[in-house]
């Protein structure tokens, strides 16, 4: 149960992992996530599924090593079993033929936006995608995104590849062009999603973002993942993970994501110094 079927570092510190989870694979829809525990003393972390294979009974995740749990996960070997996998959680992305859909993915968020652009294309949309990363080595899934899009733009912050600069400047250009964009999907670091929403708000194009607040049970029980959307408190796990980006209080989200910075550092330190419990 819960075996790691395959793992691969697809760019610096970003991993793609295929997990054995036949029942989840059967139900999973684009936009949904799983919660996993690496070992019995581990924490529960949510990760969006980027793909699933019902026939093989697997789901695929893409994650970046940012703390102890993701480091631990990346260090696990093919054939190892995770302590727990729970899913599929959250609402699926609302996919329909909007006309022209624009997908923006940043960093590891490209992994999350990829299945959405694919589903949008299958639903008949003209799909324009903009993906970006800090630098060339951090860019992922370019080929896959190309296949899932009618037009693909690539940006790097440092100009080492594609168009130099942020995804938002390309976004502005597209919105200023003859393209009539009907819906935007933006997934990536919080500052990127906020910047995208600030741009699209001026053009009045509805923009869906996928939020990644801290979760514990992820089934609507604890309220750790509360976010403010349109002045109302919502739970990221059961009301989300996707929300209307123009309504999201990104400032609150940022602050809540930083709640355990000190503890995360401490956990990482004790892991790296070799005090690896349960491993």
């Amino acid at each position: 149960m819960n075996r790691i079927i395959d793992k691969k570092e697809i760019s610096e510190s970003i991993w793609k992992m295929v997990l054995e989870a036949p029942e989840i694979a059967r139900k999973r829809k684009a936009g949904q996530f799983i919660v996993l525990m690496t070992h019995d003393r581990g924490e529960r972390i949510p990760l969006t599924m980027v793909d699933s294979d019902e026939a093989k009974g697997t789901v695929t995740i893409v994650f970046q090593v940012v703390g102890k749990t993701t480091r631990y996960l990346a260090d696990m070997k093919t054939g190892d079993s995770l302590h727990a996998i729970l899913g599929p959680l959250g609402h699926a992305t609302e996919i329909e033929n909007f006309g022209t859909a624009l997908c923006v993915g940043g960093g590891v968020g490209i992994g999350v936006v990829y299945p959405i652009s694919r589903a949008l294309k299958e639903a008949g949309n003209r799909v324009i995608s903009i993906i970006g990363a800090r630098t060339k080595d951090l860019l992922i899934l370019e080929e896959e995104m190309k296949a899932a899009s009618d037009v693909l733009y690539v940006a790097t912050d440092d100009g080492s590849y594609g168009i130099p600069g942020f995804v938002t400047s390309i976004l502005k250009d597209v919105l200023d062009s003859d393209e009539k964009v009907d819906r935007v999907f933006a997934i990536g670091p919080v500052p990127m999603m906020r910047a995208v929403c600030n741009v699209t708000r001026a053009y009045d194009v509805k923009t869906i973002v996928s939020l990644n607040p801290i979760m514990v049970d992820a089934t609507g029980m604890c309220g750790a993942c509360r976010v403010n959307v349109g002045g109302k408190t919502k739970l990221g796990c059961v009301d989300g993970p996707e929300f209307d980006g123009h309504e999201v209080d990104f400032d609150l989200l940022m602050k809540r994501l930083r709640m355990y910075c000190d503890e995360e550092e401490k956990a990482m330190e004790s892991y790296l110094c070799g005090c690896r419990d349960g491993k």
Binding site: R41, G42, E43, K68, V216, Y260, E263, K266, A267, S270
Partner: peptide, 8 residues
């Protein structure tokens, strides 16, 4: 029991 357990 943090950091013996990972959840803070």
């Amino acid at each position: 029991l943090f950091p013996e357990y990972d959840t803070p």
